[in-house]
Design a protein around this nucleic acid. Sequence first.
RNA 1: GGACCCGUAGCUCAGCUGGAUAGAGCGCUGCCCUCCGAAGGCAGAGGCCGAAGGUUCGAAUCCUUUCGGGUCCGCCA
Length: 588
Amino acid sequence: MTLNIFATIRARVVAAVATLHPGLAADVLARIQVEPPRDPAHGDMATNAALVCAKPAGLPPRAFAEALAAALAEAPEIAQAGTAGPGFVNFHLRDAVWRGQIPAILAAGEAYGDSTLGERRRVDVEYVSANPTGPMHVGHCRGAVVGDALARLLAKGGWDVTREYYINDAGAQVQALGWAAYWRYLEALGTPLTEEEFSALVPGGLQYRGEYLSPVGVALAELNGDALAPGAMPADPALWLDIVRDFTVAAMMTEIRVDLAALGVEHDVFISEAALIAAGTVTRAMTLLAAKGLIYQGVLEPPKGKTPEDWEPREQTLFRATQFGDDVDRPLRKSDGSNTYFANDIANHADKIERGHQELVHVWGADHGGYVKRMAAAVAALSDGAVKLDVVLCQIVRVMKDGEPVRMSKRAGSYITLRDLIEEVGRDAVRFTMLTRKSDAQMDFDLNAVVEQSRENPVFYVQYAHARARSVLRAAGEPEAAELAEAKLELLVEPSELDLIRKLAAWPRTVEQAALAREPHRVAFYLHDLAAAFHLSWNRGRDDSTLRFIREEEPESTRARLALVAATAVVIRSGLAVMGVDPVEEMR
RNA sequence: GGACCCGUAGCUCAGCUGGAUAGAGCGCUGCCCUCCGAAGGCAGAGGCCGAAGGUUCGAAUCCUUUCGGGUCCGCCA
């Protein structure tokens, strides 16, 4: 049920080539592309068919192109075809073909752009996975939005998507969190100890001193009285650490879920590291790798040029990551015998594969860039190369206010939480703005600019286009679908109108290209272009009143234009839905 | 020392996985409000795509080298 006009026409081109040159191999035909030319003056579409097929066919590219152009000119959708440059075939589609997209859009509604490209392959998209040791801050925000939008994009592209949050609830950091919450609990009980006196009792010293744990301490006191700290004095950790830690992790996850909900970010599954360990998944994964001969005892070379002072050669349990493209083999066990984070994460990936996923996608912060190769190596090893891991790295976001970077210290109170950010500029502005850059490019998030109502703010610009479209439809008395379906679309002859239709028709292709590249930001740029085309059409009516959408004296023309406006609103909504942004009915 | 990411108009960034004369917004210059919304519109100037080689019909895009900026580098996650 593909509505991708480019795919339709490409099929025509491939068929024409196959007819002219029956002997061409399938992999040659596969290289044929049909895309919009960079310069619209060249036509609606262009194909490289002659360039990629001429040599195998034993013809000069120009001769191949001439013959192909002649054949394509016979196709019912194509108005004219010609050759250009080294062997391109450019062609114009009949206006009727373009206009025919409008009823297709109106019939499909927001499902317009849905693709079968993903062939329902099962893909696991893991994103956020913030440690459950505190509230979410803006550093997590970009990955959350990019991951969520990417999941929506892949779903629209025809993949069967699982959205995963991996909870790092095992290991030293959550132990430290338990101690920190215990301190707040002691405080709630009225302990005579000072924070520094308590810190001296904590292995490694007290961490997570932010006040956000105080409510957890109070809750613990209400639930347990002083049972976990008789007389409001520290007791043996064996008595309380597991209880307090689990309680605190649960409380932090509740906070995080609230934040994610406020941002409109959703997950299907929350996978617990501790649960994976308890279920024996780690052991199974290690056994699997060992059976493949990929685990050994060995000593690593020190990193060149930057040897840590306390470096000493040490024999450890290593995974043969170098067999799968990594730079060095990677340790699986710490010196105390417990597993490294990497070992547990291997189990997480084994679990994803066991659950039947054929593709894996991760959204990580750029600080995890050095971790990509080893994880890709592990996935390749676990699946014998059958499953591919794609990692989308998100670079740092710098929050700017009044031209100055907002300081981001880890100390409580002085850093911006995600909730602060949403309250300041609104959910939709946060989401849209986070998608206005390639994720691997650094970004300044300007608090002043994203709430500005002007053309340079893409959030506003796109929303405004939708609001305008809706305003027109309201002014026209909300025409019914059936009425619009009867519109005489051949009355749409203005260049600005046909340009707008071409832009609308590019949406399915945009979805597919963006999904393949795992680049949701392309949707934001597409919507900006579409909004520009719509605003242009609107503004034509300013200079020439006969070009207005609504003209009472011309009901047929009005109806055709309303169909175009309605289709525009539909596609904007379809695009915003991928970004997780709500369309607005009017600007305020 | 090594790995990964980024260098494109004065500024902020796109560039559809190798295509044609490299695009948009801001800023700049000049025009345009009796108007379904001027919180705008139209037109114009502005580029050796960091640099140098290479691959091929063809390179901003792929490879090598190099110069800048960022992230990171054995028992943190």
